[in-house]
Design a binder for these strands. Structure first.
Length: 501
RNA sequence: CGCGGGGUGGAGCAGCCAGGUAGCUCACCAGGCUCAUAACCUGGGGGUCGUUCGUUCAAAUCGAACCCCCGCAACCA
């Protein structure tokens, strides 16, 4: 059922933002998914990028006295550097100021204009003089904005409303399109109200850092037609039909739940208008909370992912973020739960198992992987569990249950620890070295397979396990660990964190 | 009655769709082992599954009402 091509996206992040755990989480998630799908033998295209147009960039650049593009060049680096640090293996990093993207946006706008889906009208809304932008009804009511007044302005609109019925039918017919289910219901609820048209422009006198409307040079397009189209620019829409045909529609747009409407409604109707297929899945994940509230800059409770990474390493952070959050729900981030997770899963179970088997093989077999003899019933159990893992992981990943894919793998690790305990190879070795060898082969081979399935989550650490076992690059099938392989010397991979909290 | 999600041992979750001894991880207690990162393994304590009513031989699971928490309610990236 999985198609040979898997195309995953993150949102494009606003260059002006300080990269925070939310950005890091979405992107790590996309990377883990991409790596799992690559491991499952699929061709993968992983697109991320930055959104560089808009009022805030223009203002920030003016304030610093630099050209907007120079400002963007500088700020975009913060994201690409972070992704490098977080071991993000993306295939494309799109910037909305790139000519390839501007071409797509202009071509799309022209086409929709030609077919009558874009028209001029007055836009009336609440305008914040201080912020120099329109604000929402909710924002106005919050009282957080001063100098608010009604403003009417000539603008351009996209006929979004006319696609409402088509969209409702589309969503109702596809249980997998918007996930999780609760979000799907939310959008269907939203669509019970009449859907208006979408304002897509700003006059240049207010905002000139944007893509000019091809049919109205005194305007630039605002937000949606600029940002959302990145998903088709990446795989080569208009520019390269063959490549685009290969990757589009996207397998999954990973997004935060805050931009669900944008993607489910605006983007879908834009694609309808263009006659393009919709992405297979739009998946909205939850937020990391600290205590009660969303982690936000204004509350000063932002956890900088780089700090965590500097202190504990990339892989444990990737492991924690993907194991702890059930995709779609919110999760609590606390240092305490991070440390618990690290110690119980990574140090005690996974890392310690490596030390157990490598120590025993070192002592009893001069560090050479022993051969496997006749398999006992207990041995068969481990082999069966390891053999069954592939399907379990594949199912969990296909259903976006990353935490489950990880947990299934850790269950194998725990099973092996139990097996080693019961088989007691350190005792058996005194009477029957051949049998002890079989036990250790079984345990080590099981560990290798567990490490293989942890590679997408912990590309460095899981690979280190494979290095120790002389099995880098080996596949997930049973029996690929070669007897006679000299185990490499190693330190503890995940030294327990003995930190008072 | 705007729409939707949820309330399960100390914590975080599964189970609910296809009713039938309440499961997992962590924490706690006791024991075992001693290969290993005081790790690992075994056993145990702890839950009237938000409340009430109903359906049923039987309900965490189905239905109704109520209480509480959360999200959405659009042009905000």
């Amino acid at each position: 059922m999985p198609r040979p091509y898997f195309y995953v996206t993150t949102p494009i992040y606003y260059v002006n933002d300080q990269p925070h755990i939310g950005h890091a989480y979405t992107t790590i998630l996309a990377d883990v998914l991409a790596r799992y799908h690559r491991a499952l033998g699929e061709a993968v295209f992983f697109l991320t990028g930055v959104d560089e147009h808009g009022q805030k960039v223009q203002q920030a650049a003016e304030k610093r006295g630099v050209a907007p593009q120079a400002h963007c060049d500088e700020y975009a680096l913060r994201f690409s550097r972070l992704w490098e640090r977080l071991e993000i293996q993306y295939d494309d990093f799109l910037r909305t100021t790139q000519p390839r993207h501007i071409n797509v946006v202009r071509a799309v706008l022209q086409r929709l204009y030609d077919q009558g889906d874009i028209y001029p009208a007055d836009y009336a809304g609440w305008y914040s003089v201080a912020e120099e932008r329109f604000i929402t009804e909710t924002e106005k009511d919050s009282g957080a904005f001063r100098d608010v007044r009604q403003l009417t302005e000539r603008n351009w609109f996209f006929r979004m409303g006319k696609y409402q019925e088509q969209l409702i039918k589309y969503i109702e017919a596809r249980a997998d399109f918007i996930q999780p289910d609760s979000r799907r219901n939310e959008i269907l609820g939203f669509l019970r109200q009449p859907l208006g048209d979408l304002c897509i422009s700003r006059p240049k006198e207010r905002l000139n850092w944007g893509i000019e409307l091809p049919f109205a040079p005194e305007y630039v397009t605002y937000v949606w037609f600029d940002a959302l189209l990145n998903y088709v620019t990446g795989p080569g829409y208009i520019a390269d039909d063959r490549r685009f045909g290969q990757w589009w529609p996207a397998s999954v747009h990973l997004i935060g739940k805050d931009i669900l409407t944008t993607h489910s409604v605006y983007w879908s109707t834009m694609l309808f208008a263009l006659g393009l297929p919709l992405p297979t899945t739009i998946f909205a994940h939850g937020w990391w909370l600290t205590g009660e509230s969303k982690m936000s800059k204004s509350l000063g409770n932002v956890v900088n992912p780089l700090d965590l990474v500097d202190q504990y390493g990339v892989d444990p952070v990737r492991y924690y973020l993907t194991r702890e959050m059930i995709l779609g729900q919110d999760a609590n981030f606390t240092l305490e739960s991070f440390i618990k997770r690290f110690n119980s899963d990574l140090a005690n179970d996974f890392g310690n198992l490596l030390n157990r088997v490598s120590g025993l093989i070192g002592k009893n077999f001069n560090g050479l992987v022993p051969a496997s003899g006749e398999l006992s019933e207990a041995d068969q159990e481990i082999k069966a569990a390891a053999d069954g893992l592939a399907q379990k992981v594949a199912d969990a990943v296909a259903g976006f249950r990353i935490h489950e894919a990880i947990d299934e793998t850790m269950l194998l690790v725990r099973l092996i620890n139990r097996y080693v305990e019961k088989q007691a190879p350190w005792k058996v070795a005194k009477e029957d070295l051949t049998r002890a060898g079989t036990i250790l082969y079984i345990a080590t081979e099981g560990l290798r397979i567990a490490a293989f399935y942890l590679l997408p989550v912990m590309p460095q650490k899981a690979n280190q396990v494979l290095e120790v076992l002389g099995a880098v690059g080996s596949a997930g099938e049973w029996g690929l660990l070669k007897p006679g392989t000299k185990l490499a010397a190693h330190e503890a991979l995940f030294p327990r964190l003995e930190i008072a909290i």
